[in-house]
C-alpha cells in the first residue's frame, strides 16, 4: 500500500467510529425538537416537548430527586474517598495491597449482581427500598472512582513538603489544610465530578433500590420506554446526556485520567 493511503484509511476509520458513537445521540436530540409525536419527517422545529416536559410533575420530581441524590453522594463519597486516599498514600502498612484490591469489586462486578445483593441485604436489616438505600448504594459505587482519582493526583505529591511544614512547627491539621489539600485539590474536584456522574447516570442499582413512584430520572425513563415512549422522553434524555457529558468534560480537564498530559 502506498505511503499516504494507510494513514488516510485510518483517519476515515476513526471518523466513522465517531459517527457511530454520536449519530444516535444527535438523532435523539434532533427528534426532541421535532413537532411530530411519531418521529415523522419532514422535520419541523418545535419546543413543545420541552414545554410538556416542564409541566410534567413526575419528570420534574424525579429530576430533582436525581440531582439531590447525586449531590449527597458527591459530598459523602468525596470526603470519605479523599480521607482514604491520604491514608493509603501516607502510610506503609501490611494489608495495603488488599485494601487497594477491595476497590475493584464495586467497579468490576456487574451492577445487576451488586444491586440485587443490596436489595436483599437492605431488606434483611430493615433499611428496605427508598432514597436512603439508593444513596448508600451510590456512595459505595462512587468511592473507588474518587479514591483512584485522588490517589493518582497524590502520586505526584512530594511527601517531604509535609515534613518540612511539620519541622517548622505546623500541627497535622495545619499540614493537611495548608499543604496537602491545596496540592491535591484538582484531583479532589475531579473525583467529586466522577462521583456526581456515577450517581447521576446510575440506573441499575437505583432501579432495584428505589421505591415505585419515588424513582430517579433513569428509572423513570426505563419505565416510560417500556410502556411506549413519547418525545417528552427524548427531551429529558437530551438534557441528561448534555449534563453528563459536560460534567465528564470538566472532570477530564481537572484530572490526568484522559491519557498522557
Amino acid at each position: 500500500m502506498s505511503r499516504s493511503l494507510l494513514p488516510l484509511i485510518g483517519k476515515l476509520w476513526l471518523f466513522a467510529i465517531l459517527f457511530f458513537l454520536y449519530a444516535p445521540i444527535l438523532v435523539m436530540a434532533a427528534m426532541s425538537f421535532n413537532a411530530s409525536p411519531f418521529y415523522q419527517l419532514p422535520f419541523e422545529l418545535s419546543t413543545r416537548w420541552y414545554q410538556q416536559m416542564a409541566g410534567n410533575g413526575q419528570i420534574l420530581s424525579a429530576a430533582l430527586r436525581s440531582v439531590g441524590i447525586a449531590m449527597v453522594t458527591t459530598l459523602v463519597a468525596t470526603a470519605l474517598g479523599t480521607a482514604a486516599s491520604i491514608g493509603l498514600f501516607r502510610y506503609d502498612f501490611a494489608g495495603k495491597k488488599v485494601l487497594m484490591v477491595l476497590l475493584f469489586p464495586p467497579i468490576a462486578i456487574p451492577w445487576l449482581i451488586t444491586g440485587t445483593a443490596m436489595l436483599i441485604f437492605f431488606f434483611a436489616i430493615g433499611i428496605g427500598r427508598g432514597t436512603p438505600a439508593v444513596i448508600i448504594g451510590h456512595v459505595a459505587l462512587a468511592l473507588p472512582y474518587v479514591i483512584v482519582t485522588v490517589t493518582a493526583r497524590l502520586s505526584s505529591f512530594d511527601i517531604t513538603l509535609e515534613e518540612a511544614a511539620r519541622s517548622m512547627g505546623a500541627n497535622s491539621w495545619t499540614v493537611l489544610r495548608r499543604v496537602t489539600l491545596p496540592w491535591i485539590a484538582p484531583g479532589v474536584v475531579a473525583g467529586g465530578l466522577f462521583a456526581f456522574a456515577v450517581s447521576f447516570d446510575q440506573f441499575v442499582v437505583s432501579y432495584f433500590l428505589s421505591e415505585p413512584g419515588d424513582s430517579t430520572l433513569p428509572v423513570l425513563i426505563y419505565t416510560a420506554i417500556r410502556k411506549g415512549f413519547t418525545p417528552e422522553i427524548n427531551a429529558i434524555s437530551t438534557i441528561i446526556i448534555a449534563v453528563s457529558m459536560l460534567i465528564m468534560f470538566l472532570a477530564t480537564r481537572y484530572s490526568r485520567f484522559a491519557g498522557d498530559r
Binding site: 444516535p24 445521540i25 438523532v27 435523539m28 456522574a197 447521576f200 447516570d201 440506573f203 433513569p218 425513563i221 426505563y222 420506554i225 415512549f229 422522553i233 434524555s237 441528561i240 446526556i241 453528563s244 457529558m245 465528564m248 472532570a251
Partner: peptide
C-alpha cells in the same frame, strides 16, 4: 461516561 440508558434509548 454519559448515561448508558439514554444511549440505548437513542438506538
Amino acid at each position: 461516561w454519559s448515561n448508558s440508558l439514554v444511549r440505548i434509548f437513542s438506538w
